[in-house]
Amino acid sequence: MTMRVLPALLLAVALVAGGCSNDDYVAPRPPGTSDVADPVTAAATVAAVQDAIAAGDGDAAGALGADADASTLLAALVANAGALRLGDVTLRYVTETGRTSGSDGWDGQVALTWRVEGFDAASARTEVPFSFADGGATIAAVGAGQGRLPLWLGGPLDVRRAGQVLVAAAEPAQARRYLPAARRALEQVRAVVGGDTGLVVEVPADSAGLHRALGVEPGRYDTIAAITAPVDGVAVEGSPIHVFLDRPVYDGLDPVAAQVVMTHEAVHAVTAAPLAQRAPMWLVEGFADYVALRDVDLPTSRTAGQIARQVRADGLPDALPATSDFDPAASHLGAVYEAAWLVCVTLADHRGEGALVDLYRQVLEGDDFAAALRAGFGWSERDLTSAWRDRLADVADVGR
Rank of each mutant, 00 (worst) to 15 (best):
residue 2 T to W: 10
residue 3 M to T: 14
residue 3 M to Y: 13
residue 15 L to Y: 13
residue 34 S to C: 04
residue 38 D to W: 02
residue 40 V to S: 06
residue 48 A to V: 06
residue 66 A to N: 07
residue 76 A to G: 03
residue 82 G to P: 00
residue 83 A to H: 08
residue 85 R to C: 07
residue 87 G to E: 10
residue 93 Y to H: 03
residue 99 R to Y: 07
residue 102 G to R: 09
residue 104 D to T: 15
residue 106 W to L: 11
residue 109 Q to G: 00
residue 114 W to I: 07
residue 119 F to W: 07
residue 123 S to C: 03
residue 123 S to Q: 13
residue 126 T to F: 06
residue 127 E to W: 05
residue 133 A to K: 03
residue 133 A to R: 12
residue 140 A to W: 07
residue 149 L to Q: 14
residue 158 D to A: 04
residue 164 Q to M: 06
residue 166 L to R: 01
residue 166 L to I: 07
residue 168 A to P: 13
residue 173 A to E: 15
residue 177 R to A: 12
residue 181 A to H: 05
residue 185 A to S: 14
residue 186 L to R: 02
residue 187 E to T: 15
residue 194 G to V: 09
residue 203 V to F: 03
residue 206 D to Q: 07
residue 215 G to P: 12
residue 218 P to Y: 03
residue 220 R to E: 14
residue 224 I to V: 15
residue 227 I to N: 12
residue 227 I to R: 05
residue 230 P to L: 04
residue 233 G to W: 06
residue 239 S to H: 08
residue 254 D to Y: 01
residue 272 A to K: 11
residue 278 R to V: 14
residue 278 R to T: 15
residue 287 F to R: 10
residue 288 A to D: 07
residue 296 V to W: 09
residue 298 L to P: 03
residue 305 G to W: 00
residue 306 Q to G: 01
residue 306 Q to Y: 12
residue 309 R to L: 15
residue 314 D to N: 10
residue 328 P to I: 02
residue 331 S to F: 04
residue 333 L to A: 04
residue 334 G to H: 00
residue 354 G to N: 12
residue 357 V to Y: 11
residue 360 Y to G: 02
residue 360 Y to N: 08
residue 362 Q to D: 12
residue 371 A to N: 05
residue 380 S to P: 09
residue 386 S to L: 14
residue 387 A to T: 02
residue 389 R to A: 14
residue 389 R to K: 13
residue 391 R to V: 06
residue 392 L to C: 14
